[in-house]
Write a protein that binds this DNA or RNA. Structure first.
Length: 472
RNA sequence: GGUGGCAUGGCCAAGUGGUAAGGCAAAGGAUUGCAAAUCCUUGAUCCCCGGUUCGAAUCCGGGUGCCACCUCCA
């Protein structure tokens, strides 16, 4: 397995700390608003990574955090001026922030289910780990990496020279490029210092701490929970492109200042999902949530395939036509498995088939091993389908082919469930009537019945072996 | 101003030194009572200029265009 590591900027050979075992942490959602499809690109990448690693024989432990406090609207300012996003939404809707957090967390899980994302091994909430955060903050102060000013605790950037290694925004660069954008004056020693603990009497979520009542800053939660559930050094840490800076820089600074060991071996970030030539984000208008898309008739699997068809790191344009295309492709896959390869006649085994299957599996695997090259993996699958359709296999060969397609689908998970085979008696008799009409060459009546069933969502397919149908 | 990234046929998209995967769309053909599906056929010298090389979409230099981060954001 080779994977692109943001830390080095290169695709590297992946070697977990423990042979065959992977400790993976995914930056999860901030539960103050419904996540949109752009957010889900990052979560589906995490899912892909987990599935691919599992397919390749690794045992993966996956932890994804739920941010339910402390994510500020002004992380850079990172003093008491910044607003907690959850708090802001709570004030807007005039409801308890806890209520919003739990509601949005529930929606998130619902969306993941629609997207066929199997649950991670844990979804720790920030608010359940304030004690761990306080402990880490205390350690940072002890070691001289953090300082308290009037109930606020800041991480001192100057105490961590490696700051900026991940994003390229090193301190000298940040200072050089300040260009008037860092203008605020605060109680911080350096404008780039970020908050670990914040005092704010008006905040609705308050915890006791050695520095008085307050609540934790955003970045510290990931350091605390990653350490608790996966240890001091993670094999993989994922996130969206926006997490690189400052969030992940801050995580590195906090954790490594305490442990003195590398925090993460491989940083993996996805590319932006773009809409209208720009990124899709909550602060702009046009974004789609999962329920909005399903109401429009798209299935989770359509969205999966749309996202998995291109490389996870490339910027990906989003529009409904591309989603339609994914739907078309998926229909072709379904058709192959449930129609072309089903009810095949008996036949002799094709001597070339074993090699075709082995080559296809090798190509598929090698593509995944090459920094999750899903485009190439899918190309292998399409070429297999083409070759098999051409060869018109007998039943046993067809079953072998389908088994391989299903094996690939453990990674992609885009096949529809098997079509229902039960039909009510009325429809059944209409189909029989049509068969009779066709036999009598009464095509007018036959087409009439076809149209009628189509209106009821039943699509008829005439084959040599008789009339088949499927729900359209 | 600083940082990171992108530029491949109508659209989407692989490919990082050896004569451009795959998908969607489109067109023609085979098959079909009509359909659907399937099969056959048809398309790009890879943003521009210069360089390195026997050979570059792929490396180097210089341009141009676009996106993002340095505010909230996956």
């Amino acid at each position: 397995m080779r994977i692109h590591n943001t830390l080095t900027g290169h695709v590297e050979e992946f070697k977990p700390q423990r042979e065959g075992q992977v400790a993976m942490y995914n930056c999860g959602p901030t539960v103050y608003k419904r996540q949109h499809i752009g957010n889900y690109r990052a979560f589906l990448m995490a899912d892909l990574l987990r599935r691919a690693l599992t397919y390749l024989g690794y045992e993966v432990t996956q932890i994804m955090n739920i941010t339910d406090v402390g994510h500020l609207t002004e992380d850079d300012v990172a003093d008491a001026q910044g607003e907690d996003k959850l708090q802001k939404e709570a004030a807007r809707r005039n409801v308890d922030p806890w209520e919003i957090a739990r509601e949005q967390e529930r929606y998130f899980m619902e969306d993941l289910a629609v997207l066929r994302v199997p649950p991670a091994h844990g979804y720790p909430r920030a608010t359940d780990h304030v004690a761990e955060m306080i402990e880490m903050i205390g350690q940072l102060i002890e070691k001289g990496h953090a300082y308290e000013v009037d109930g606020n605790v800041y991480f001192s950037i100057d105490s961590f020279p490696a700051y900026g290694r991940l994003s390229g925004n090193t301190m000298d660069k940040l200072n050089a490029g300040a260009g008037g954008r860092v203008e605020e004056r605060t109680d911080k020693k350096s404008p780039h210092d970020f908050a670990l603990w914040k005092r704010d009497e008006k905040h609705l979520m308050q915890w006791d701490s050695p520095w008085g009542k307050g609540y934790p800053g955003w970045h510290i939660e990931c350091s605390a929970m990653a350490k608790k559930y996966l240890g001091e050094t993670l094999d993989i840490h994922t996130g969206g492109p926006d997490n690189k800076f400052p969030h992940h820089e801050c995580e590195i600074a906090q954790t490594e200042s305490i442990t003195g060991r590398p925090f993460v071996r491989y940083w993996v970030h996805c590319g932006w999902l773009e809409i209208g030539g720009g990124k899709m984000s909550k602060s702009k208008g046009e974004l789609y949530t999962i329920p909005e898309l399903t109401e429009m008739g798209y299935e989770g699997a359509d969205i999966r395939l749309f996202l998995l068809r291109s490389h996870y790191r490339a910027p990906l344009p989003f529009d409904l036509e591309l989603l339609d295309e994914a739907k078309t492709v998926r229909a072709r896959l379904d058709n192959f498995v449930y129609h072309e390869m089903t009810e095949r006649p008996d036949g002799t085994a094709n001597p070339d088939l074993p090699k075709l299957l082995a080559d296809t599996r090798r190509r598929f695997k090698e593509a995944l091993e090459d920094d999750l090259n899903t485009s190439a993996a899918l190309a292998a699958l399409f070429e297999l389908m083409h070759a098999v359709n051409k060869a018109q296999p007998g039943r046993e060969d067809a079953e072998r082919v389908v088994a391989l397609v299903r094996e690939f689908d453990e990674v992609f998970d885009v096949l529809s469930p098997p079509p229902q085979q039960d039909l009510d008696a009325e429809i059944q008799s209409l189909i029989e009537e049509r068969d009779t009409a066709r036999a009598e060459r009464n095509f007018a009546r036959a087409d009439e019945i076809r149209d009628e069933l189509a209106a009821r969502g039943i699509e008829l397919i005439d084959t040599d072996g008789g009339t088949r149908w499927k729900k359209s």
